[in-house]
Amino acid sequence: MTLSRAKRLAPVIDMAEKAEREAARQLGHFQGLVGQAEGKLGELERYRSDYQQQWLTEGRNGVSGQWLMNYQRFLSQLEGAIGQQMRSVAWHRQNLDKARAVWQERYARLEGLRKLVQRYQDEARLAADKREQRLLDELSQRLRQQES
């Protein structure tokens, strides 16, 4: 009886496994997007650092007002791009956190179902062992009665 309960759960476990695999795939996808966004942010920050280093180099030799205005304008645009990329990284991290929560929930559900099936299988084995022991006891008792 309990073994049939375990077998009836097989389609449910299949669906839960598919849902967990899809959630894991989504989690990997969002991890990749976070990595890409963080990479772009790193590139922008390195570019800003290089550009600031150029200011130090050029500044020692003296710069024109036009060069300084262009430098400040470009640096301002670069700071804006960095800020926007930081927001993008944060947004991707939020999506990653949501995907991780979905995966954890689906994984926990799948593990719960697997434990339930294992319990049903253990109960079925125990019941079968008891039936077998009862049959052996009856057979042994009959043999003793026949010997007497």
Score class of each variant (00 low, 15 high):
residue 2 T to M: 00
residue 2 T to G: 01
residue 2 T to L: 00
residue 3 L to A: 08
residue 4 S to T: 08
residue 7 K to S: 06
residue 8 R to P: 00
residue 8 R to S: 03
residue 9 L to S: 03
residue 9 L to T: 00
residue 11 P to R: 01
residue 12 V to D: 04
residue 15 M to S: 04
residue 16 A to T: 03
residue 18 K to N: 09
residue 18 K to S: 05
residue 19 A to G: 02
residue 20 E to H: 07
residue 21 R to Y: 05
residue 25 R to F: 02
residue 25 R to G: 06
residue 25 R to C: 01
residue 28 G to K: 09
residue 28 G to L: 08
residue 29 H to Q: 07
residue 29 H to D: 02
residue 29 H to S: 02
residue 30 F to H: 10
residue 31 Q to A: 12
residue 32 G to N: 12
residue 36 Q to P: 00
residue 36 Q to D: 11
residue 37 A to T: 07
residue 38 E to N: 09
residue 43 E to R: 11
residue 43 E to C: 03
residue 45 E to W: 04
residue 46 R to Q: 09
residue 47 Y to W: 07
residue 47 Y to H: 10
residue 48 R to Y: 04
residue 49 S to R: 12
residue 52 Q to A: 06
residue 52 Q to C: 04
residue 52 Q to E: 10
residue 52 Q to Y: 00
residue 53 Q to V: 05
residue 54 Q to G: 01
residue 55 W to S: 14
residue 55 W to I: 13
residue 55 W to D: 13
residue 57 T to P: 08
residue 57 T to Y: 14
residue 58 E to V: 13
residue 59 G to I: 15
residue 60 R to V: 15
residue 65 G to R: 14
residue 67 W to N: 07
residue 68 L to R: 15
residue 68 L to N: 14
residue 73 R to L: 15
residue 75 L to F: 12
residue 76 S to C: 09
residue 77 Q to S: 14
residue 78 L to K: 07
residue 80 G to R: 12
residue 81 A to Q: 15
residue 82 I to G: 07
residue 84 Q to K: 12
residue 88 S to M: 11
residue 89 V to S: 08
residue 91 W to D: 13
residue 97 D to A: 14
residue 104 Q to W: 01
residue 105 E to P: 08
residue 106 R to G: 05
residue 107 Y to E: 13
residue 107 Y to R: 14
residue 109 R to D: 10
residue 110 L to Y: 03
residue 110 L to D: 02
residue 112 G to I: 06
residue 114 R to C: 09
residue 115 K to Y: 08
residue 116 L to D: 09
residue 117 V to A: 05
residue 117 V to L: 03
residue 119 R to P: 02
residue 120 Y to D: 02
residue 120 Y to N: 03
residue 120 Y to E: 04
residue 124 A to W: 00
residue 124 A to R: 01
residue 125 R to P: 02
residue 126 L to N: 10
residue 126 L to Q: 15
residue 128 A to H: 08
residue 129 D to V: 06
residue 130 K to G: 05
residue 132 E to Q: 08
residue 134 R to M: 08
residue 134 R to N: 07
residue 134 R to G: 03
residue 134 R to W: 04
residue 136 L to P: 02
residue 136 L to Y: 02
residue 137 D to N: 11
residue 139 L to K: 05
residue 139 L to Q: 12
residue 140 S to Y: 08
residue 141 Q to M: 11
residue 142 R to H: 07
residue 143 L to N: 12
residue 144 R to M: 07
residue 145 Q to G: 01
